[in-house]
Design a protein around this nucleic acid. Sequence first.
DNA 1: CATGAATGAGGCTTCATTCAT
DNA 2: GATGAATGAAGCCTCATTCAT
Lengths: 209, 209, 209, 209
Amino acid sequence: MARKLTAKGTKRRSELLDYAARTFARDGYHTTSVASIVEGLQVGKGVFYWYFDSKDELFIHILAEAQRELRLTQRDAIAGEHDPVRRIEQGIRGSMRWLSEHRHLFVLTEFARTEERFAPLVRAGERQAVEDALPHVAAGITAGLLRREDPEVMTAAIIGVTSHLARVLVLEQGRDPDRVAQAAISFCRDGIMRAAEGHAAVLAGRTAD
Amino acid sequence: MARKLTAKGTKRRSELLDYAARTFARDGYHTTSVASIVEGLQVGKGVFYWYFDSKDELFIHILAEAQRELRLTQRDAIAGEHDPVRRIEQGIRGSMRWLSEHRHLFVLTEFARTEERFAPLVRAGERQAVEDALPHVAAGITAGLLRREDPEVMTAAIIGVTSHLARVLVLEQGRDPDRVAQAAISFCRDGIMRAAEGHAAVLAGRTAD
Amino acid sequence: MARKLTAKGTKRRSELLDYAARTFARDGYHTTSVASIVEGLQVGKGVFYWYFDSKDELFIHILAEAQRELRLTQRDAIAGEHDPVRRIEQGIRGSMRWLSEHRHLFVLTEFARTEERFAPLVRAGERQAVEDALPHVAAGITAGLLRREDPEVMTAAIIGVTSHLARVLVLEQGRDPDRVAQAAISFCRDGIMRAAEGHAAVLAGRTAD
Amino acid sequence: MARKLTAKGTKRRSELLDYAARTFARDGYHTTSVASIVEGLQVGKGVFYWYFDSKDELFIHILAEAQRELRLTQRDAIAGEHDPVRRIEQGIRGSMRWLSEHRHLFVLTEFARTEERFAPLVRAGERQAVEDALPHVAAGITAGLLRREDPEVMTAAIIGVTSHLARVLVLEQGRDPDRVAQAAISFCRDGIMRAAEGHAAVLAGRTAD
DNA sequence: CATGAATGAGGCTTCATTCAT
DNA sequence: GATGAATGAAGCCTCATTCAT
């Protein structure tokens, strides 16, 4: 593609992008036909193929854009923050808010994972996310703030908590994203155990298994 | 359907179920045609429709069966364990092992969420999972073992950690499921923060936000 | 086919014949599958092909049998009657009664006409019906009882009135077949015009067209 | 459907309608595949579904259109005629001519009656036909021109004569429609009995049954 | 005789994509 | 830039028929 677009053209293109993304998310990628997209926008079929090479290309574009935006949001969220723990917390907050505001893009990632031609993109994005967060976790460990565990595992766990709570509590149950972010942070920080003595005892039991 | 099946028939049916599940997982639901399934099993097309009403019905069946099996595995895993915390830990171990052994069923759930005709099933299964785990979390709180937080949130977070680590570390990176389970447990128990003093300080900062 | 059948076999065969005929009539020939027939009778598919070579053969058999029965009914109805006009009347009565009692066979004839492989059978049956009735009409003319018109046309018209009233008034509206038969007879005998002088006048008008 | 069609599109659509109707009539509805229709018109398979939602929908459209046209023809045929008897006669003439000119549509109605999803349409059309003709018959009775019998029965009988003679004499035997129409009229007017004395005698016999 | 299982051609329909205007 | 029309491969499913047991 890479066409030079007029102002009107640019607008058309984002309309397509946005409408398609929402429809894909609501009805599924395969269930949504190109015909239904152009019909929904009241334009001819030619329009679609004027702006995009194919349905797949359009989808990939949506996906890439979503990843880019989420990443920018996270970057903004932690800007000006230097404490590694706070950076992580702000990252969680930023992600949660973005996910709640772009819920339709969330499910698209999920779908993309299920087809081999799209999956690499998702995996790359995920690796990127880990790479982005990893330094802060590592710094936290180095600074003696965080538990001395495999930082990659920790990072993955944080992402797991954040995205799952986003889906279940924010998207499905409609809870307030900031509150949920706070809960995710709290969980990630301290886990479920009551602090103090309890630890040692149970850990002892564990080791005995 | 609900056909009376002979021994041979029962076997065929499972073959179909299993082969289809693996193919759906590998290539995607829509990308896998009924034709390719029967071809893979070297049988005529009619065989498929002798055992299943439709491709959708088959898929739903696979999904339901997977949820049932995972649930049974979890039940078995915590059987004989009375301590709530240990129950949770064993639940995580059981789930992780099952997910690693049935990785193909994992991705199917992910896909199912992306189409409205399948999504309700997934959501129901997820609610079920929360309901199954919730009592143990609640019991842990009552017993003074767990932090006094919204038990539903905690449960969801545990599930989020478990499933995400299963995917990223076990399925994608091929790590040992038992080790990953242990890591998940550790994260869920204690979070990322180094115990002791750190807490109060940062929490104070948090409140000031 | 032409298999030697045991007593049980003969019964099975007519069960199939009857059930198939009713189902064909209710749902249509193509819409009724062999599978649905054997299922409705709670037998295996082998049974069907034990008694009949094919679905088409079965249908043709039903058709032929129906024509034969109707013809026998008509023969019985006019037996012992020597007056040509009365013979016609009794033929109408007999037909009407038979049609009302075998309504499902009625619609099958209608369908058969729409496919070239069955149509000849229907046409042959219809020719037969005309040939059966024609002599009585001809005799009526010779005897000076009936109008001196093309007897074939008259015969066809009588059949048309009978079958159409059977369908609309008896089958669809549920009226009493004997009453309808009487109405058909009355119409065929005297037409719609009031007797006497009216005729000439209008006929004169007609000729002037 | 309800698509905006260009001139070319409108033409295509009629081609499909017409070709399909003729093929359905010649070979039967089920025996005619969508594939054979588009092949016969030398177009791609998609063309069919560009203009119609389904094979069934197309068929229903053909049916409805045929009923509409026949009705218009009848209306035209009796236009300018005020005498009820003449109206009936002209109606018969018009119908006969139309049926002979659209013989392929005739058999389609017959088929439609044999499947429950189409049958209501046919029955509705038939009721309409009766309703259209009924007033003239009733008027004829009131005016003392027609025999004082149940007008609905008379109407149905007239339709029965007309359609049956159309099929047997015009379509199957290829006789001249105008001549057949005249014969139908004659039959409907006066029946088969020679006028005058015969009546009373036989009617007496009838009553004695 | 009878059953459950299997076959595979063929039917209807969808849909990404292309094209003439 | 845009439209309606067209293409045709491919998908899901049905069903008459056959076969092993």
